[in-house]
Design a protein around this nucleic acid. Structure first.
Length: 152
DNA sequence: GCCAACGTTGGC
DNA sequence: GCCAACGTTGGC
């Protein structure tokens, strides 16, 4: 089993939104970055564990845990001209973009903030903290996962 | 709202 | 293939 961190802006789609979805599951659409796409397409497996991260908000940080509920399949929002994430270069025969389904597992008892994560020497290799990183999906090692959970 | 750090686009 | 211009992300 692998571990991941996925970013979302709570104003658009936060951990509460995921919890309130039917089956507490939602497809993770709109990723338009090749590195992130490749991870969803090639590496994410059902049952993988995910840190749900809130970005672009008052207190950026990890707020909950989710799991991969469905492995990579075509991101159909790319085919819809009216969709914000429409991409004319992608088509159903040969989809450019991929998404997975993510299921709510639990909230953390508190937000483990970006500020706090930055203070930990154990996490200097965490992709989230690497300089200039802007990936919305990134891998987390088992050691990093356990360490971060231990902060809760 | 500002701005650094990207990734992408397109002219050449 | 180079690189300037542009758009986006996301912390602050």
């Amino acid at each position: 089993m692998r571990y991941w961190l996925m970013k979302s802006e709570p104003d658009a789609f936060g951990i509460d939104d995921l919890q309130n979805r039917s089956q507490q599951t939602e497809h993770w659409d709109g990723v338009r970055n090749y590195q992130a796409r490749n991870m969803m397409r090639d590496a994410m497996k059902i049952g993988d564990q995910v840190f749900f991260y809130h970005s672009n908000c008052a207190e950026p940080g990890i707020v909950g845990i989710a799991r991969i509920a469905r492995e990579g399949y075509p991101d159909f929002t790319a085919f819809d001209p009216d969709d914000k994430h429409f991409d004319p270069k992608s088509n159903p025969d040969k989809p450019t973009w991929i998404m997975v389904d993510v299921q709510f597992v639990r909230r953390l008892s508190r937000t483990i903030s970006l500020k706090e994560l930055k203070l930990k020497t154990e996490l200097t290799e965490l992709a989230l903290l690497r300089r200039g990183n802007r990936l919305s999906i990134m891998p987390v090692s088992e050691q990093q996962w356990q360490f971060i959970l231990g902060l809760e």
